[in-house]
Design a protein around this nucleic acid. Sequence first.
DNA 1: CTTGCGACCATACATTGTGTATGGTCGTAG
DNA 2: CTACGACCATACACAATGTATGGTCGCAAG
Lengths: 220, 220
Amino acid sequence: MSCMPSRRTVRSDRRSAASPASAELRERILSATRELLQNSRFDSLSVADILDSAGVSRASFYFYFPSKQAVLADLVREAVAQGQQAARPWTDQEQDPVTALRAGVTDGARLWRDNAGVLMAIVESWGSDEELRELWLEQMNLFTEAATARIESDPHAGPRLGSTHTRAVAASLTWLGERLYYLAAASVPPFDDEEVLIDTLTTAWTSILYGDSSRLEGDS
Amino acid sequence: MSCMPSRRTVRSDRRSAASPASAELRERILSATRELLQNSRFDSLSVADILDSAGVSRASFYFYFPSKQAVLADLVREAVAQGQQAARPWTDQEQDPVTALRAGVTDGARLWRDNAGVLMAIVESWGSDEELRELWLEQMNLFTEAATARIESDPHAGPRLGSTHTRAVAASLTWLGERLYYLAAASVPPFDDEEVLIDTLTTAWTSILYGDSSRLEGDS
DNA sequence: CTTGCGACCATACATTGTGTATGGTCGTAG
DNA sequence: CTACGACCATACACAATGTATGGTCGCAAG
């Protein structure tokens, strides 16, 4: 998936025989961490746990990654790459706005469901690590940019907002999503109910962009 | 190290005449932590730092507090107690809704400005400590309850929302605030500009509650 | 006076976690 | 055969947390 093995020359094919580990340890480390993250919080996860789970030695771990945080960063890049596809139809405007909005919100929910561990980890950790901070801030920024562009080119939403504030509004919606998806993943009511999550987020987007929060289905 | 015994400033004033648990050191610990938090993140703060800054011994620290987190919990309770007063006029409805909303948002901004260190600390840490988690979740919950009550008793806002969703909407606005105030405190654009912060949050509240985001001053 | 107690300090320790060596094994390319 | 690259085992240096031990000081009651 195109990342960048800039660390070192990892691409070797010497896995012909004997070793119990013929594949890239790097992937094993990533997979193990991803799985551990489904049941543990990132900060209560030690590299020793990852080592045990991946069946890798301490030395090998630090050969491929400079720190635990770097592993998370890779996993996040992986997850968001997957998410940018989900966000694509979101920025189209081929269908009616509210429907498109709801579809985008739903895609986000699925992305978060599929990558709950990793995404929760980064939301909890980006405040305490510079690399993770920049990564996440950049991600939120990309999303905000896309939303801003969409809003400004929307004949209904665009004019309603002062152009100075459009970006701020887009940013606030982005961060609202970040928080609500996180709360849902963390099972914090009332967002632990996915339907409530999606309805509420969709309500927020449509209300703020179109000033219309009614008619958002009322099926409880 | 601190080989110099000059730290014993407590000497004769040890306990002026008071009774059990006069606990002057306790206050010193709280104050020192509060101040340190203005320039450091909570997780990059060791108890040794607090000890140095407060001029207290390790043993005394653990006499008063079971952990670093407990100190933060106390500071947070302190700050939010101060904030509940700020939130009171917020739940009144004596003035026009948008004005009241903006006033409430502004109060929140002031609270966050005055207690930035402590509040940032808890937002960053409530995910990793059970005590802090419950404390913060309860706080968000109290705020959500108040907002819900306000919305439901509001002739303009109440009817517009399905009653099932009212609480969820209130919760999302609460968490939006948490996130945006935090970002402002962390100097993340565009919310590092307090005017943008307040305008955007006010826009969100009025849009979602009243479906009206226009006429929110366009002075930019 | 002296004994007890509560607030407090100094220091050492057990434990856990991180990141950095150091040195060794084993297959394959040269 | 030898060098090298991928890998492992282990130990170490460091930092931080929380606990334990024992001691000082001031006051109050016997």
